[in-house]
């Protein structure tokens, strides 16, 4: 089943064309990796897909409806986005912040119930923040804040996950933990995800499909086996790339 569709999207920002005529179908059960050099417009594309900014031309469809016509609340029940930066200004607790994921599911005067709290605690556990429930978010380290933001996203339970560099600030253990959890959502709940990544090898390990942004509006999309090879990666990052075989498949190294 198709969860999110981009139809002939033209997006540009400050005179730079990010994509021309982009057609993309995110089906349930797919894990897309979004690759491209720094500043090529990955975040802007994700924002467009989340309905946070309008494209120059074309349309984004969520559950077969144009996202521009959907109210934010309806969007939030179907689609969630992990932003690249997470800055907490006010002193809320970790548990309170995880619970904000329930916001689109609750009415104005409705309070979170036992079920909502159970979901929040489960998500906090999933990102390895157990025991931090009462801590203030302003005192968290960069990596901890990042994991908490991901926990809120899990609590929100959207079927479409847009992840802007989900492994930013995370150590190896937690990178794997978060990516495993995304994979689990995709396999068990038939969710789908699109993750902007800088680590090509995370994409090689987890993604089923790849979208590459080359700049000047050029893009390429397809199954991971077709796109992840030294030739396309060299074209994408403008640097020599070597591949090595490991026990879990082909991996890539930047050459000199």
């Amino acid at each position: 089943m198709t969860a999110l569709v981009c139809k002939s999207l033209d997006i540009s920002i400050a005179g730079n064309t990010i994509c021309n005529n982009l057609d993309l179908k995110l089906e349930r059960g797919q894990f897309w990796g979004l690759l491209g050099p720094n500043g090529i417009g990955k975040t802007t594309l994700l924002k467009c897909m989340a309905g946070l900014m309008p494209p120059d031309a074309g349309n984004v469809y969520l559950a077969n409806q144009s996202i521009e016509k959907l109210p934010r609340r309806a969007i939030a029940r179907l689609l969630g986005m992990l932003q690249q930066h997470t800055v907490y200004v006010f002193d809320a607790s970790v548990l309170e912040t995880a619970l904000t994921g329930r916001h689109p599911h609750l009415g104005h005067w409705q309070r979170e119930g036992a079920d909502d709290k159970r979901k929040a605690l489960e998500a906090i556990k999933a990102v390895d923040l157990e025991g931090f429930e009462a801590r203030s978010v302003t005192g968290l380290s960069g990596g901890e804040a990042r994991r908490l933001a991901f926990a809120s996203l899990l609590v929100q339970e959207p079927a479409v996950l847009l992840l802007d560099e989900p492994t930013n600030h995370l150590d190896m253990k937690h990178q794997v933990r978060i990516m495993n959890r995304v994979e689990q959502q995709i396999n068990q709940q038939q969710h789908c995800a699109l993750a902007a990544l800088h680590d090509v090898n995370l994409a090689a390990r987890y993604c089923s499909h790849i979208l590459m942004l080359f700049g000047n509006g050029l893009w390429q999309a397809g199954p991971v086996a077709e796109l992840l090879n030294p030739a396309t990666l060299e074209k994408l990052y403008q640097c020599p790339v070597e591949s090595v075989q490991t026990s879990t498949g082909e991996r890539f190294l930047a050459g000199g």
């Binding site: 934010r72 609340r73 969630g80 800055v87 912040t97 904000t100 916001h103 104005h108």
Partner: peptide, 18 residues
């Protein structure tokens, strides 16, 4: 509750349905 969400930033609030 909307204020709680808004306190986390405008974009976050929009993504959470406000």
């Amino acid at each position: 509750r909307s204020l709680n969400v808004l306190a986390m930033g405008e974009t976050t609030a929009r993504l959470l349905g406000e």
